[in-house]
Design a protein around this nucleic acid. Structure first.
Lengths: 164, 164
DNA sequence: CGCTTGGTCGTGATAATATTACAGTATTTG
DNA sequence: CAAATACTGTAATATTATCACGACCAAGCG
């Protein structure tokens, strides 16, 4: 099982997360001969400000604020599409929001732990979950192509805070 | 494992599905002292026209057409909220669409098999999937409150058609 | 070097999904 | 019946996402 749940929910040197993500992005783009343009990098950068997902229009706002000029939806959606395509970010269907992928390299049928209290999201790749899903789908004769697994709940720190 | 995958994807006497769903709805409303008003029943009825989920605005269209007068969004969203609350329908986050629940009585951490070809959706309650999710979340110290599991792929009949 | 081609970006308009606010009507309850 | 509660009608608006079209830029080629 692969997961960034410890870093996502705890105090940590987030600068390292950001740096690692950008490095991986650059490498991946080089491999695929894709261009990590300034806009695309800015969007990725924004998504890695924290482990909290960001809606497309929040990105538009922040990008507009940062650049001083009005950024329009297609600009951001195009960047998001590009990053999604490369597996550098994910879209969270239950939140209509986007988040950076902490391990774009591993081929993942991944799932997400969304803390309803602090808003942070961790990503996991757990084989047993994947196996269970594929096995059960198979029982129904269903061919699995893409999984969307989003778990809402409380992360460890927020459980402790709530208990008080 | 509980599932309606055989009926959902195959030829079947759908009238029975519809009838059963309405009967269950009436019973559940009686139990909860909730009112299955004409609008609410119409919406539920529409959602049980088939095993294909329906977007809110499709419901609005159909309801408008059927009643002869313009039905506005809040009317339908209120009915949907009511039915969701009672567990009589589900919302599919990946499709922004709604579908009738085939077994509202079982307390389910359920998941959905969405066929990308025919558009039909089956619902399953599989303990092993649920267990795997809870177990893996626990490993990360995460308290699960609500699961969203939506599997995109091909149902048996559509796999066969595609193979040709 | 200039040209062409394909990918990227800027912009306005619009589509699709969902919510708010408020007034009016029906239903249940005391 | 009166009061309280639940339900509905309606206009306006919020939120998320896409389309269409033209300009621009960057890489490869004659």
């Amino acid at each position: 099982m692969q997961s960034n749940s410890t870093t996502a929910y705890q105090q940590h040197d987030h600068h390292r997360c950001l740096k690692a993500a950008l490095a991986q992005a650059r490498q991946r783009c080089a491999e695929r001969k894709a261009r990590l343009t300034p806009i695309r990098e800015s969007v990725l950068h924004l998504l890695w400000q924290s482990h909290r997902p960001l809606g497309a229009y929040k990105i538009i706002e922040q990008l507009s604020a940062a650049s001083g000029k009005r950024v329009l939806p297609p600009t951001v959606y195009r960047a998001l599409d590009f990053l999604l395509e490369l597996g550098l970010i994910h879209r969270l269907a239950t939140l209509n929001a986007y988040i950076g992928c902490p391990f774009p390299d591993s081929v993942h049928s991944d799932y997400f732990l969304l803390c309803r209290e602090c808003g942070s999201v961790a990503e996991c790749s757990a084989e047993n979950v994947n196996d269970a899903i594929v096995a059960t789908a198979e029982e129904a004769g269903f061919l699995v192509e893409k999984q969307t697994v989003e778990i809402l709940g409380l992360c460890t720190p927020c459980q402790e805070k709530t208990r008080k």
